[in-house]
């Protein structure tokens, strides 16, 4: 009986020592998977807003149509900024993999600045439209447009807040396991926003200009 208890006490020591790392890995894999599910539900949110826009895009109620208010070079600038920020996010991940904290912070800061200029451009467009009397209350088309593009812009703003918190955390604690996990999830989120923007760019702006 005495030997039994000693083996029982000894076994968990050796097993748990290795399995904590494995448990952590498993936990991070589950988190990553769960975050992907979240992104998919977010995709459904955007799909319903796209459907609403598709239905209401012709209902201008005497107000301006897409062709009247969209400026192709302006939207191209927005698109290139967001695309470049997606690339600097990739640079962030490459620097993180190489365990180079200053590079991670620099690339993350570049991503944040590009994201900030994207949101500023989007807000300036909204302000210009509202000042000209083409606010969301003018027509069903403008309501749908503001909701769809605004929801994307809101996501970018939330992403910027997340980016700032993540940058501070990496600056203070370094590239620890929790920070690597957060970087992984954030890169997914940021690339996802670029993915949604491709369709905003094409289906809303380019098709609107045609």
């Amino acid at each position: 009986m005495d030997t039994n208890t000693t083996t029982r006490e000894h076994e968990p020591l050796t097993i748990h020592h290795t399995s904590i790392a494995e448990q952590d890995l498993k936990k991070d894999q589950t988190t990553f998977f769960g975050f992907w599910i979240y992104l998919m539900t977010d995709l459904l949110l955007f799909a319903s807003l796209f459907a609403v826009y598709g239905v209401l895009r012709a209902n201008t109620f005497g107000g301006p149509s897409g062709a009247d208010i969209f400026s192709a070079p302006f939207v191209l600038t927005e698109t290139l900024i967001l695309l470049t920020s997606s690339f600097t996010m990739g640079l962030t991940m490459m620097a993180a993999r190489a365990n180079r904290k200053p590079l991670v912070l620099a690339a993350l800061a570049a991503t944040g600045l590009l994201g900030l200029s994207f949101v500023s451009l989007e807000l300036s467009e909204f302000i210009k439209l509202i000042a000209a009397g083409h606010g969301p209350q003018q027509s069903a088309f403008l309501s749908a447009y503001f909701t769809l593009v605004g929801t994307h812009g809101l996501h970018v703003m939330i992403g910027l807040a997340w980016l700032l918190a993540l940058g501070i955390s990496i600056g203070v604690r370094g590239l620890t396991r929790p920070n690597m996990r957060k970087l992984l999830l954030f890169s997914m989120f940021w690339h996802f926003l670029d993915l949604v923007w491709i369709f905003l760019f094409t289906l809303v702006y380019l098709w609107g200009i045609l």
Binding site: L25, Q29, A96, R97, A98, L175, T176, M180, R181
Partner: peptide
């Protein structure tokens, strides 16, 4: 301890192992 100290991780392997 691992939660408090946030131990170093193998960054080379992390993205491959998790994602």
């Amino acid at each position: 301890h691992s939660r408090l100290g946030q131990p170093e991780v193998d960054t080379q392997q992390y993205f491959e192992n998790v994602a």
